Simulated scan of single mutants.
Amino acid sequence: MLGIFKEKLVKAPKELNSPASLNSCTKPKLSHEILQDFMSCNSSNAFSMCFGNEALLAYSPSNKPSIHQRLFSGLDNIYCVFLGGLHNLSMLNKQYGLSKGTNEAMFITEAYRTLRDRGPYPADQVLKELEGSFGFVIYDNKDGTVFVASGSNGQIGLYWGVAADGSIVISENLELIKASCAKSFAPFPNGCMFHSEHGLMSIEHPTKKMKAMPRIDSEGFMCGANFNVDSQTKIQVMPRVGSEANWATWS
């Protein structure tokens, strides 16, 4: 999986952008170069979708059976790449009135659309209901927003970094991220969600701020940042009432 979102669409956390990238023997790449690398190292059934000059999603189905499946869904201008599996998918489908054949990517897309358009239920509460291992990226082409989440058990690893043009790059492929972003990358924090307008938030502790901790690589250079819950801080939030309290516009 690969997602690339231009800087004017998504502001990457400033701590991801390491000054060591300028002096690294591996230089950050441009978006089209990263896409070429992804397509060349994946199977012939890989495909990509470009949304003007602002967003790009690329996807390659799993070539062999695995509990960590890769799925793609597109519905009503919402596109989702899902990694992993949900143990309680059947229950969730019943809860949302979806058919038995709805897979994880389709469910996430439907849940996102429901909450964006109609539901006052907070995003962190929805994600807490997901049982299993998961990581996903949603691009909402209607609203021009990006939503990323990773489960708390750490079995699905996502990585994010900054490309040469300032775009944010997201993938489960660590080697691709390293080659694309030089020193400006880090693991996407487990148990967290990221929204292009409102930034990074813990799913388990949504009222706590996230704190960036510098990462030092084996060569002694700063290499992006790890993000952890800062237990000493609290986000001041208004009561979530009405259509604003959803995945598309939490605050």
Rank of each mutant, 00 (worst) to 15 (best):
A58H: 06
Y121N: 08
S73Q: 03
F38E: 13
I170C: 02
L30Y: 14
G132T: 12
C223N: 03
T26E: 15
R240T: 01
L16A: 05
T207Q: 04
I235P: 14
N173T: 11
C223M: 06
L71N: 05
I108C: 00
S21E: 09
K14T: 15
A225G: 05
Y59E: 01
N88Q: 12
Q125G: 06
M91K: 08
C41H: 06
A164R: 15
N228K: 15
I177P: 01
L86W: 04
Q232H: 14
S21W: 14
V10A: 07
G144N: 10
G132L: 01
W250Y: 04
K211D: 04
I78L: 01
C223E: 11
I67P: 09
G119E: 10
I156R: 08
F38Y: 15
V162P: 01
S31C: 11
A179N: 15
M193D: 02
M210F: 12
G132W: 03
D117C: 10
L115T: 12
T26Q: 12
G191P: 02
D143Q: 07
I235M: 10
N42I: 05
I138T: 00
D37K: 12
E197C: 14
I235R: 04
P187F: 04
M222E: 07
Q125L: 03
N246E: 05
A46T: 12
S66T: 05
K211P: 02
T114M: 03
T26Y: 14
T233L: 09
N93M: 01
S48Y: 12
E104C: 10
H68K: 07
S152Y: 13
K27L: 09
P28L: 07
N190I: 13
A12Y: 10
A55D: 11
F72W: 15
E15T: 10
K27R: 06
S150P: 00
K29Q: 08
L57A: 05
N23E: 14
N88V: 08
E15W: 00
N173H: 11
F107L: 06
H195K: 09
V237P: 00
N23I: 06
Q155R: 15
M201S: 03
L2D: 00
N53A: 10
A20Y: 14
